[in-house]
C-alpha cells in the first residue's frame, strides 16, 4: 500500500492525467495469464459438460444422426409420455428408490458411529490399525468388488455358505446370487463394507478438532463416556453430517450404474433394473437416443430438485447448506 491512501486527496494533489481505470479492467490486464492456467479445465468442462447440456434437447426431438440435433423433428414431451406410460416405469422408479433409500439408511449413519467409537478407543495403536484396515476396500475397483461378492456368496465353495454350514449347521447352501430377494442386501451391505472406513475420515477429522478442554470439563462434571459422545462429540460432527446428507440427496436417483450393472443377472433383473442401467441399455445397446435421453433427463431433474429442496430446508433449520 502506498502512503498516499492515508492522505486526504485533494483535487490539486491528484493531477487528472488519466481517466480512472475500471478496477476490473486493471485486474484483467494484470491477470490475463491466469486464464491460461484455467483454460484446459475450462475447455473440458465446456465441451464435455455444457455441450451435452445443449444436446439434451434431443429428449424433446425424434433424433436421428443424419439430420443432426437441430434437424431432427420436435416432438415435445412425446418421449417422456412414452416413458411414464411404459410398463417398466413404476418398477424402474421403485427399484431405483428402494436401492437408494436402503443405501442411504445403512451407509449414512454407520460411518458416524464408527468414527465416534474410534474416537473413544483408548489405545492409539489399536485405533490406528483399525482405521488403516477400514480404508483398504475403498481402493478396490467395482469390477473386483463384484467379483469378490460373487466368490464369497456363490453356492459351491463360497465363504459365506461354508461358514453357514460349518458354524450354524445349514444343510443346503443358500443361493444368494440367483435369488432376487438377496440382491438389495448384497448391494447395500457390500457398499457398507467397502466405504464405511473411508466415509468416516471426515468425521474423525472433525472429532479430533474438538478441544480437549471441553471433554475435561465434561469429565469434571461427571459425564460418562456415553454422555460425552452424546453431548460433546455428536454435536461437533453434526454440521459435517448435514452437508454430506445434502450431497447424498443430490445423488438420490443416481444409484451407481457400474455396480448394479455388474451385479445384474437374469435371476435378479426384476429388482436390479434401475433407471441408469435402463438408460444404458436402451441408449447405447439399442440406440434409441431420444428416448434414453428423456429417461436420463427425468432422472437428473428429480435429483437436482431434491438437492435444491433439501438444501433449502437444511439451510433454514440447521443453518448448514451447500451454498
Amino acid at each position: 500500500m502506498k502512503d498516499s491512501s492515508t492522505a486526504i486527496p485533494t483535487s490539486a494533489d491528484v493531477p487528472p492525467r488519466r481517466k480512472r481505470v475500471n478496477p476490473t479492467v486493471k485486474l484483467l490486464k494484470r491477470n490475463w495469464d491466469l486464464y491460461l492456467l484455467l483454460l484446459p479445465a475450462l475447455l473440458y468442462i465446456v465441451i464435455l459438460h455444457y455441450v451435452p447440456l445443449y444436446g439434451v434437447q434431443i429428449a424433446f426431438r425424434d433424433y436421428n444422426p443424419w439430420d443432426g440435433i437441430l434437424g431432427s423433428p420436435w416432438v415435445g414431451l412425446e418421449n417422456f409420455k412414452r416413458f411414464f406410460s411404459s410398463a417398466q416405469f413404476w418398477s424402474l422408479l421403485g427399484n431405483t428408490m428402494a436401492l437408494s433409500v436402503y443405501s442411504l439408511i445403512a451407509s449414512f449413519p454407520i460411518p458416524i458411529v464408527f468414527a465416534l467409537l474410534l474416537n473413544q478407543c483408548a489405545s492409539k495403536k489399536f485405533g490406528k490399525a483399525t482405521q488403516m484396515i477400514s480404508y483398504m476396500p475403498h481402493f478396490i475397483s467395482v469390477v473386483v468388488l463384484v467379483g469378490i461378492i460373487n466368490v464369497m456368496f456363490q453356492a459351491r465353495g463360497g465363504l459365506v455358505n461354508i461358514l453357514l454350514s460349518r458354524l450354524l449347521g445349514f444343510q443346503d447352501p443358500i443361493l444368494f446370487l440367483s435369488h432376487s430377494k438377496y440382491f438389495r442386501h448384497l448391494y447395500v451391505w457390500s457398499g457398507v463394507w467397502q466405504n464405511t472406513g473411508w466415509s468416516s475420515i471426515i468425521y474423525i477429522a472433525s472429532l479430533s478438532s474438538v478441544s480437549p478442554e471441553i471433554h475435561e470439563a465434561a469429565i469434571v462434571d461427571g459425564a460418562s463416556k456415553l454422555q460425552r459422545i452424546r453431548y460433546v462429540d455428536f454435536p461437533s460432527i453434526l454440521p459435517t453430517a448435514v452437508i454430506l446428507f445434502i450431497m447424498n440427496m443430490g445423488k438420490f436417483l443416481s444409484v451407481g450404474f457400474e455396480k448394479v450393472y455388474l451385479m445384474q443377472n437374469d435371476a435378479n433383473l426384476q429388482v436390479s433394473e434401475i433407471i441408469s442401467t435402463y438408460t444404458y441399455k436402451i441408449g447405447i445397446l439399442s440406440a434409441q437416443y431420444s428416448y434414453s435421453s428423456a429417461v436420463g433427463l427425468f432422472n437428473n431433474v428429480i435429483n437436482f430438485t431434491l438437492l435444491m429442496v433439501v438444501n433449502r430446508i437444511s439451510g433454514k433449520i440447521t443453518g448448514s447448506s451447500l451454498w
Binding site: 447440456l53 438408460t279 441408449g283 436420463g296 437428473n300
Partner: peptide
C-alpha cells in the same frame, strides 16, 4: 449433467 446419451453423442 446432460446424461449418458448427450455426452456419448459429443
Amino acid at each position: 449433467s446432460g446424461g449418458l446419451i448427450p455426452t456419448y453423442l459429443v
